[in-house]
Design a protein around this nucleic acid. Sequence first.
DNA 1: CTAATATTGGACCGATTGGTCCAATAATAT
DNA 2: ATATTATTGGACCAATCGGTCCAATATTAG
Lengths: 198, 198
Amino acid sequence: MSKETHAVGDIKSPAGPGRPRAFDEAEALEKALCVFWHKGYETASVDDLTKAMGLSRSSFYGTFGNKQALFHKALRHYSRRGLKNLRDVADAGGNDPVGAIMEALANPQGGRDGCMLINCLTELAPHDDEVAALGRQHLESIDEIIARALEPSDPGQVLDKARAYASLAIGTLALRKAGVPDEQISQTLKQARLVISP
Amino acid sequence: MSKETHAVGDIKSPAGPGRPRAFDEAEALEKALCVFWHKGYETASVDDLTKAMGLSRSSFYGTFGNKQALFHKALRHYSRRGLKNLRDVADAGGNDPVGAIMEALANPQGGRDGCMLINCLTELAPHDDEVAALGRQHLESIDEIIARALEPSDPGQVLDKARAYASLAIGTLALRKAGVPDEQISQTLKQARLVISP
DNA sequence: CTAATATTGGACCGATTGGTCCAATAATAT
DNA sequence: ATATTATTGGACCAATCGGTCCAATATTAG
């Protein structure tokens, strides 16, 4: 169905002569990411995006295809980066890696905007299979990261426990959206330790 | 700023003669609620709403004012009904009221659409103070309900514990959105018991 | 030089958005 | 009968939506 064969995620992969790109595609993607993060998918208009990315409408469509393709690309990028960051947090998490992971999950860089992936999951997953699939995969990865951090000090049921910890952290994002102060969220999170009943 | 003084939430409160309402306002509100629940606020168009409610555009605006006012009214109604239901669940929750509450929270009637209030919180709270305030109030009420169910078997820190339980249950809504099977969610939820560290 | 590509900016498109207005009609009260 | 209100359905509005297209220009490779 696609018009030509391209490199994954790219609309055009020029080879021959011609004027080179004047803007950095990665930077532009990052700017778009911020807009989607802050406003959500539907509410972010193409005008919003092009202005934030510093692109003309022509360059926008020529480079990224359309709004939805750009969005999916941005979301995949966000997921990849977020998981990498989470693994780093786990590795550097001292004597309480699980606590560190949960803090990172509950305090995304977006501040009150929360976690972009959870936002988009809420907005689009029931009507967009690709987003739902990416969301499932992202959440699974989070479970694995927590499980790995949990394993040394606890032999069994690490995956079930990890899932519960992940849900707990993700649940607090709703509180942040509602404007509950950071202190309370942090306190609730720090005090909660899970016990898995057999 | 309002043109006249009206009963709370009503645009018109007729008293004198005239043709009576042919439709049930509560029923219409319920239909609108379902549309907002399923599609979200922005994506639900006035056409979607009027069709679902069985109203002409004129009756729609004449009765509910505008889309946003209708939405706020529906959301308040949803919150009220949900909290009442939750209290009933807690009362009828046998030997494990907290488990029953969490099941109810994690399995809202909307199925994969999840909890309307959490959805709307995610979509609108950062840009709509009224929604944020309603969300905060709703979440606080949930905390209180869980705390009350927790109290008999546990003296201290019931509120902190309740907050963690609530976040845990709410977090699983994201899993449901992503398409994680009910069984896994239910299992994760049942196995998780919380311990609050001092 | 030429050919090829990028960039810009704006015109333009059809569709949809939330919302208003109106004329005709129907049902109620006094 | 008259006044009042509800209801309908569609015309209509300005604004915005995502997306296409084009002409002009700039920058590269050969």
